[in-house]
């Protein structure tokens, strides 16, 4: 097996890593708030936002797409809240109703406009990494892909968002009513978080597709959750897991298919698989929660002699 690692591969990993970190940090709060499925919901629900933004302006200017997506993300969160509060529907079901309906609207909008434009729904899911790596801008002496800049800035915004609102986010994730009594508006923080998720999804969808966002929002934070009980550590760990899975994923995309005599595959999917593999190893080997540890403990308990009881002796 031979590798032809060139600058394109480096950029792929950089884009993947940046998206992973950008998604994993807000994802930690999704996991803690038990809203993990919101990432998937929003990544589907932004479709009409993007389609509307495109149909109204007839451009593919990224800023406008961001606005459309952020609006759709906020709408998803707001509708979900509305339905579960006023209709007394389980929040998961409310989420499912909202995002599938929005996705259906998005599909119709795109199909209607597909005659005169190319805005492929498949591209939303898989992205088009090959093109976004080639699409470069000159910064100083270095040619940097445009996607690196957009995802990099989104990642910076996300990190800034978490650092600045760390206290508020933590309080409202663990105890919303405490957060309210402390004077933080936990509703506002909820909607801000939803907006961040939506914007991150758009930033990543052009290059890597929404798959990577869905996976990276949840899998690295869940992995980190199994490894630590400290929120700050969890945030850092999830970022590290995200970076690692981007690198391993790209490596896997290059290395694994040839084993079966196939051509190299799309990296974003393999990045998700790599994240899954990392989660799996944490699941088995985590020092505090790992399955092996628990099995060992159980065996230890089983092997221990019973305490002596009266009349019997040990």
């Amino acid at each position: 097996m031979e590798f032809n690692w060139d600058s394109l591969d480096t950029w792929t990993v950089v884009i993947g890593g940046l998206s992973a970190v950008a998604a994993a940090m807000p994802g930690c709060f999704l996991v803690l708030r038990r809203m993990s499925m919101m990432g998937d919901a929003i990544s589907h629900a932004i479709l009409p936002g993007i389609a509307m933004a495109f149909l109204l302006t007839h451009t593919r200017i990224t800023a406008i797409m961001f606005i459309g997506a952020a609006c759709a993300g906020l709408l998803t969160a707001a509708f979900t809240q509305c339905i579960s509060k006023y209709g007394k529907v389980d929040r998961g079901a409310a989420m499912g109703i909202v995002f599938t309906t929005l996705f259906a609207i998005g599909l119709i909008l795109i199909r209607q406009s597909a005659k005169h434009v190319e805005l492929d729904p498949g591209c939303v899911l898989y992205g088009s990494l090959e093109y976004s790596v080639i699409d470069v801008v000159q910064i100083g002496a270095l040619e940097v892909p445009r996607a690196v800049i957009s995802i990099g800035s989104v990642m910076c915004i996300n990190v800034l968002f978490i650092v600045l609102l760390y206290k508020e986010l933590a309080a409202s994730s663990f105890d919303p009513s405490l957060a309210n009594t402390l004077g933080f508006n936990s509703g506002l923080i909820h909607y801000l978080l939803m907006m961040v998720v939506a914007v991150t999804t758009v930033a990543a969808f052009e290059s890597l597709g929404s798959i990577i966002v869905i996976a990276m929002l949840i899998v690295p934070p869940a992995t980190a959750f199994l490894l630590t009980k400290n929120l700050a550590h969890m945030l850092v760990l999830s970022a590290v897991v995200g970076l690692l899975s981007a690198f391993l994923g790209h490596l896997g995309a290059m290395a694994i298919p040839p084993v079966f005599g196939l051509e190299a595959t799309v990296s974003s999917g393999m990045m998700a698989v790599a994240a899954g593999a990392l989660f799996f190893s944490a699941w088995l080997f985590s020092p505090s929660q790992g399955l092996f540890l628990r099995l060992g403990e159980r065996r230890e308990h089983a092997g221990r002699p019973l305490p002596p009881t009266a009349g019997e002796g040990s």
């Binding site: 996991v31 993990s36 499925m37 949840i218 899998v219 799309v266 999917g269 989660f279």
Partner: peptide, 28 residues
């Protein structure tokens, strides 16, 4: 059943990883 993670996280993990794997396989 075996981790402190809740329902939603478990579903999110399976969804993301399986769908990623699916995309990779489809591309192949």
């Amino acid at each position: 059943r075996t981790t402190p993670l809740k329902d939603d996280a478990a579903m999110g993990i399976v969804l993301g990883v399986f769908f990623g794997a699916g995309a990779a396989i489809m591309k192949m």
